[in-house]
């Protein structure tokens, strides 16, 4: 069921949704949002694209296997978790830069932790969905 309307729309929706997901990720610490929702929205963007264009074509855009996002995400999350240990603080102590960065706002270890969550969620959702869809079609 290829629909050209959906195909055209998904071309534009993919970047917009991805941008929205990053937006959700970044604002999470102050307003509704966060890594988990952001990751889900990003996955939905890809899933929508794969519905319109087929899983193979979506995988071509992604270039890398979604599975590889999982270890990267876990690594980032655990690094941000153990970073304070290097400074002699207990695990998961929040570390923050003094000055806010334009656009992004305050940057701290919590943001990196959230980034890890974001990547893991994308990796997990896409791995599960794409694996199943490739095996059923």
């Amino acid at each position: 069921m290829r629909s050209s309307i959906l195909q055209t729309a998904s071309q534009y929706l993919l970047p917009i949704l991805l941008l929205f997901s990053v937006f959700l990720l970044l604002r999470g610490h102050y307003y509704p949002g966060g890594g988990f929702v952001g990751g889900l929205v990003a996955s939905i963007a890809f899933v929508l694209h794969s519905f319109a264009n087929g899983t193979e074509n979506t995988l071509k855009i992604v270039r890398y296997k979604p599975l590889s996002l999982i270890p990267i995400g876990l690594l980032i999350a655990s690094l941000s978790m153990f970073m304070p240990v290097l400074l002699g603080l207990p695990v998961m102590t929040g570390l923050w830069f003094e000055e806010p960065i334009p656009v992004i706002g305050m940057i701290g270890s919590a943001l990196f932790f959230d980034l890890g969550v974001y990547l893991v969620v994308i990796g997990v959702v896409l791995t599960i969905l794409f694996t199943i869809s490739q095996n059923t079609h």
């Binding site: 509704p32 949002g33 999982i70 876990l74 978790m81 929040g94 932790f113 969550v117």
Partner: peptide, 28 residues
């Protein structure tokens, strides 16, 4: 303590960060 205004998110990534860590491991 955690420099966040969204309490839900602060709980997820800071106060109960360990839970979240294990949850993403389980997801993986």
């Amino acid at each position: 303590l955690a420099k966040g205004k969204n309490v839900v998110n602060v709980i997820l990534v800071d106060f109960r960060g360990f839970d979240t860590m294990f949850e993403i491991v389980v997801l993986s």
